[in-house]
Design a protein around this nucleic acid. Structure first.
Lengths: 215, 215
DNA sequence: TCAATAGTGTCTATAAGACACTATGCC
DNA sequence: GGCATAGTGTCTTATAGACACTATTGA
């Protein structure tokens, strides 16, 4: 019995210029050396405590990103997806506010051709993120640690790819109960009323708050 | 670099005497030979087209169950969960109406001690199934191919572990639009009005219908 | 004081939940 | 006819969505 090839791959998402973007990495080794692909790699059994830990390591090494929101998406496997033989990859997705220079970011709907089944993986993840955004606090992980409601609202609109009524958004956001105002912190932009700055409550630092009925 | 041990495990659920039950299998080989555990095994790269196909094969061989509703739950991995070394398992869960004699069924809240992290896996799957039941047609896969609304209602109540108003249940079930009446088929039980027999519409044979706002 | 964005209040439409009601079989 | 369960109608309450309104700053 031949042992399958086992890897982890990561889908690192962030927003650049009001567009949802994914990090790609130029492969160094065969197969597909030189091609853009998702940051991925083998599990190092001597240092990784889990597949998720391996994914976190890959993100740090290949994209310069540390401890983002990280969630398992699922596995992809089969005899033909990798030319080297029967393979399985465990896919994780991560959301970060900004990305170091180490990673090249591509808008999710203008991707180059990707090797393996990476195109399919990205579109699956984007679908999942859109879906979870519609009923949870997931998109806050695309914002910096401190932000205004207007900024978070814009983030939701980019992820959902549709206009969201800001008044109702505020109400539902209050229901989620994930944010706290930074005391005394206001942001002044132009000549309008300054807005309150918020941050995530501690207990939601790496958890989601979920609503029964949509945002 | 040491290659991880890679397996699939399955959580086969069904309802026996109004209780949600899981199939366990007595392990033949070490480690934990003789212990009750989830049906699982290695991927056979020469015959399995995917990890999911491996899970389907395991279910057929170890539990005598063929082509049920089968969904990936997630992976569990790490250096200590298997005494043989760094391991990963991909967990799939299956829902079936009845179970062949091949499998021993245990109520999910009266399980024996299970090896590896199988207890944690079962409770995770049960939580996921309960959650999906609350907004989708998932529990129909626990019913035989033909059933009455009352039977399906009872199934939902077992899965959700709470009373569901039958009148509202009918309305929401109609919204899901997954069932069709079997023409002319009625079920008579006792001296009351016979009930219409329904079956799944073809296009939902292995897909779910999902509602925005709960069942 | 006016422009601009922050933030609140409220009306309407729709869906959920409770529950009374009718329907239809067998005894 | 009456018992039992199938199945429907409808009233009340909660939530979503639309949108008008007030608040607060800088220019």
């Amino acid at each position: 019995m031949v042992t399958p090839i086992l890897t982890v791959d990561t889908v690192l998402l962030t927003i650049v210029d009001s567009e949802l973007c994914v990090a790609l990495h130029q492969r160094e080794a065969a197969p597909f050396a030189g091609h853009w692909a998702l940051p991925g790699g083998f599990i190092h059994t001597h240092e990784d405590d889990s597949a998720k830990a391996a994914a976190a390591r890959v993100l740090e090494v290949k994209a310069g990103v540390r401890s983002p929101y990280l969630e398992e998406f699922g596995t992809f496997s089969g005899p033909v997806r990798d030319p080297r033989g029967w393979s399985m990859t465990v896919v994780y997705f991560a959301l970060v506010p900004v990305v170091s220079q180490a990673a090249a970011m591509f808008p999710v709907n203008q991707l180059p051709n990707l090797p393996f089944d990476h195109s399919q993986i990205v579109s699956g993840v984007v679908q999942r993120v859109r879906s979870k955004a519609s009923y949870s606090s997931l998109p806050v992980f695309l914002c910096p640690t401190e932000f205004t409601i207007a900024e978070l609202h814009a983030t939701y609109e980019v992820v959902q790819n549709e206009a969201i009524n800001i008044a109702n958004f505020r109400r539902k956001l209050a229901d989620l109960d994930v944010l706290e105002p930074v005391p005394g912190a206001l942001r002044t932009a132009g000549r309008s009323r300054p807005s309150q700055i918020y941050r995530l409550k501690k207990r939601y630092k790496d958890a989601l708050s979920v609503r029964e009925r949509g945002i």
